[in-house]
Design a protein around this nucleic acid. Structure first.
Length: 528
RNA sequence: CGCGGAGUAGAGCAGUCUGGUAGCUCGUCGGGCCCAUAACCCGGAGGUCGGUGGUUCAAAUCCGCCCUCCGCAACCA
């Protein structure tokens, strides 16, 4: 049976402009989605926005707009950024859309009927800012919100609650049975130590203190509180409890479909604890993996408006191209740990991996094919007397294998390291075989094997990197004389370039002058 | 003692689970090559692995204590 793959980003909150940190997360998901499509898996990639809540209501009022107008405008900006970054999402879910609202309401009603949700009066420590209730242990002796450290106060409010106790055993079983359900593992331990061991409270799933939300049908003065609303996007977008639920059946209900949520550490709790419980209560399958990605920070620490150190992805895309930005994001920071954005590293990464390695390899190879073979790649042959040929062949096979293993395990960074090994090996191969010497020999067989090996190495590199270099990979194939279509099935076909007329063009990635470009980027960063 | 992460060559990191000649990328210095985008290839220098005490024949790696930095609380993946 054909494999399928469903991947989601968090749905971003439209209260401010997106910065490179959001681009980071979305790009990683996009790379994974493109990989699975490339491999021929049935793939569905979802992103979207989480548009309800008190903060939106407030911000809209400050701007003299209705909440809907307010979010509509911001969401246009979100979509524009994803387009600029070549994000290949199959759908974009907005929690204010009818399809989502209806699904959430149906789920809420079902939970009510099923006794998973009850109307209670909560008396507890309430943090107004976080819109959250906390336990005695959690607020401590000083009665501070464990989340925002502001003072909390005893509050009583009529509210609906989800009975977490009913599903706690299920949750622990999930953790035990699937080691990779939440990764990195430290995130799972954090959940257990911080929230489960101290005693998990029932989750408050409605609010009466604001109105910008999905109304509870049975009791319209309540709106459904953020997490029951937001998390459901992952299935409402597929048509769950809607007239047309083809996608939901095809992906979510499909045992052969790997379902992956990528998320930030700040929302781990909701994804790791409540989302599995909701799904259990609905008797639905669980996602296979919840991957908590690291933060892309600057030297001043985490990016934030107040620090003035946020980085807008647009100027970077304009100046260096979408391929370079995507490559930087996918390669620089080890997926799962925090990383630092510095202008120096940005420029260095592009120069080393893209200009010097793959770009220069293409340029020097095509020059030689022009010079020695009038621009036509000869038939692929291997020189048995040349140990370097078999070594390069082996490197390619190993790299492809490693690339697949890494991506199957969501390790994007490692996969790219594997992919760029081919270019590095091929550059070395040129020095080892000295084709300019071979060209002077009468027997052209050795030269032929070198040139065809180089061309093929470039072909494989282009295909592997196509999930990141959405445009330049095609460019490589075009310069090699192919039509620019990426096809993974032919990746191990060494004869794909036999007798193809190359079409040498400009350097793929011009080498950047570090001093000048670092200065430029620093200026971009100062335009707060 | 709030929770969590981190301290390894000039920079950024891997290695720590499963103790046993300290590794990668970049920079730097020297050499090579000339097909190429001052690129590519080879070699050298550079680290008492935050500190300290312990376990051990042996510790970056295991255990104890201490120090420093960062994130989780303000619009913020």
């Amino acid at each position: 049976m054909k494999k399928s793959f469903y991947i989601t980003t968090p749905i971003y909150y439209p209260s401010a402009k997106l910065h490179i940190g959001h681009a980071y997360c979305t790009t990683l998901c996009d790379v994974l989605a493109r990989y699975h499509r490339l491999k021929g898996d049935d793939t569905y990639f979802l992103t979207g926005s989480d548009e309800h809540g008190m903060k939106i209501e407030k911000n809209a009022a400050l701007n003299n707009k209705s909440p809907q107008e307010f979010v509509d405008e911001i969401v246009v900006g979100f979509k524009k950024l994803w387009k600029a970054l070549d994000i290949s999402n199959d759908d974009y879910i907005r929690t204010t859309e009818k399809r989502h609202v209806e699904t959430v309401q149906k789920i809420f009603s079902y939970f009510l009927k099923n006794n998973d949700i009850y109307l209670g009066e909560y008396e507890g420590w309430y943090c107004k800012e976080c819109e959250a209730f906390w336990t005695d242990i959690q607020v401590g002796e000083e009665h501070l919100c464990p989340d925002c450290h502001r003072p909390v106060s005893k509050a009583k409010e009529e509210a609906y609650f989800f009975k977490t106790s009913k599903y706690l055993d299920d949750l622990l079983k999930i953790y035990d049975s699937n080691e990779k359900f939440i990764t990195p593992e430290s995130r799972k331990n954090e959940m257990i130590n911080t929230f489960i061991k101290p005693g998990l409270e029932d989750l408050c799933v409605s609010r009466t203190s604001f109105s910008w939300g999905i109304p509870v049908k049975e009791n319209p003065k309540h709106v459904i509180y953020v997490w029951l609303d937001a998390l459901v996007n992952y299935i409402s977008a597929l048509g769950y409890l809607q007239k047309d639920d083809t996608l939901f059946k095809k992906f979510w209900l499909n045992d052969n479909c790997e379902k992956v949520h990528v998320l930030g550490a700040d929302i781990t709790r909701f994804h790791a604890i409540y989302w599995p419980m909701f799904l259990k209560a609905l008797n639905l399958p669980l996602p296979n993996r919840e991957f908590v990605h690291g933060l892309l920070m600057t030297k001043d620490g985490k990016m934030s408006k107040s620090k003035g150190n946020t980085i807008d992805p647009y100027p970077l895309i304009e100046e260096y191209g979408v391929d370079a930005v995507r490559y930087y994001l996918a390669r620089e920071v080890n997926f799962g740990s925090d990383g630092q954005f510095t202008p120096e590293q940005f420029v260095e990464r592009i120069n080393m991996d893209l200009a010097n390695n793959i770009g220069n390899l293409l340029n020097r190879t095509l020059s030689m094919i022009n010079k020695y073979y009038d621009g036509v790649i000869p038939q692929f042959i291997s020189n048995i007397n040349n140990p370097y040929d078999s070594d390069l062949d082996q490197t390619i096979i190993n790299s492809v294998k490693e690339y697949e293993e890494c991506l199957n395990d969501l390790r994007v960074t490692d996969a790219l390291i594997a992919a760029t090994k081919i270019g590095a090996r091929a550059n070395k191969y040129i020095d080892e075989t000295t084709p300019w010497v071979l060209a002077k020999q009468e027997d052209k067989t050795p030269l032929q094997s070198v040139m065809t090996h180089l061309a093929y190495s470039l072909y494989v590199s282009a295909v592997l990197l196509s999930i990141v270099l959405t445009r330049k990979s095609k460019e490589i194939l075009l310069q090699l004389g192919l039509d620019g279509n990426i096809n993974y099935e032919t990746i191990l076909n060494q004869h794909i370039l036999d007798n193809v007329k190359i079409n040498k063009g400009l350097p793929l990635f011009p080498r950047l002058d570090e001093t000048i470009e670092v200065e430029k980027i620093k200026q971009m960063m100062n335009i707060k």
